[in-house]
Design a protein around this nucleic acid. Structure first.
Lengths: 184, 184
DNA sequence: GGTATTGGATACTCATCAGTATCGGGTTGT
DNA sequence: ACAACCCGATACTGATGAGTATCCAATACC
């Protein structure tokens, strides 16, 4: 059900997907949706919650699983780039959700909380890498986490506007320039 | 009329603003809108076109007006940061528009064209700065332009999700790290 | 001064969609 | 085996909003 919702939302956007559409995509009807969720908003909330948790979990597991730290860095970069391209639909869902939250203080607060948690997780990962590698960071890990998320989202946005204008390797190159302070 | 539309759209979003709302914000009625525009989509298109041109124009004029190149760099950074904060509503309008374009090939193509033009303008500005200052760029001016736009948009997005999590000076610091290759 | 044109108002139509009320069939528990 | 219950289907309601048809008034033109 949530899977079907994710697909439909990604394809048509949250606002212009009807509850019936989602239900039929799952092979069911509206009644089924309303017997599982209080409202459309509730469905959207549940979906975002699930997807965000899943994503964070995947990223952190993949990160911890890598034996070598350089591998971890490489994998992290690669997985982010993959995410930008493969999961562009989801990324745009997040953008729309962000727009919705702007007009709803409750959503806004909830989103801010989750975002802070996500950023903190990324920041910890960065700190771990830096420590293991003995790299001196050019700014606080927290700010660097914000920067990395902002850059990946910003590139996804640019890719959405003009898919051919954004080179695949721009993200890792930028990260390299920011983090690696040696003169080229 | 377009001013009123911009305000309403920025406040409530494109999708959830009715044509009547916009008309009343301009002190008129729906009839007035439909005698000036073919459809709601047409109105939106006209608005975005106007706003984008205005913005690009302002940026380039401000840039050319600066006598000193360092001032230009400083001003450019400052104006971008200002834009992120003051004009956040407009920024989010762009995000929503980008989402709409994703489902409409015609819009998508038009947006891609305009975006390419905007990026090219930024790239030329960067080249001019670099040349005047004798700075060696760490990547092509075109890629750097994409990166700058992506970072400013990405930070605007993060600011929208959690206004307190994004330091004001993060943008210039990032640009500094990317462009300035001296060891600190 | 009289007629055509245009910008805007009013009052509709029509479609869509969130949400509700109610019914049935299958499952669970006793 | 029977009762309570729950999940999902069907068939509504009510509201909203894009777009249209028509009318009115002011301005422009002859």
């Amino acid at each position: 059900m949530l899977d079907a919702a994710a697909e439909v939302f990604a394809a048509r956007g949250i606002a212009s997907s009807s509850v019936s559409d989602i239900a039929h995509a799952a092979g069911l009807t509206k009644g089924a949706v309303y017997s599982n969720f209080d409202s459309k908003d509730d469905l959207v909330l549940a979906l975002m919650e699930e997807h965000v948790l899943q994503r964070l979990h995947n990223a952190l597991v993949a990160f911890d699983a890598a034996d070598d730290v350089n591998d971890a860095v490489h994998d992290l970069g690669a997985s982010l780039v993959d995410a930008i391209h493969a999961d562009l639909g989801w990324q745009h869902l997040l953008f729309e959700y962000c727009g919705l939250a702007r007009r709803d203080p409750t959503l806004q607060a909830a989103l801010a909380d989750r975002r802070r948690a996500g950023r903190a997780a990324v920041a910890r990962a960065i700190e771990r890498i830096a420590e293991a590698r003995g790299v001196e960071l050019p700014m606080s890990a927290a700010d660097l986490a914000v920067a990395m998320l902002a850059i990946s989202n910003g590139l996804a946005l640019e890719t959405g506007m003009d898919p051919d204008g954004v080179p695949d390797d721009l993200f890792p190159r930028l990260i390299g320039l920011i983090v690696d302070r040696r003169v080229p």
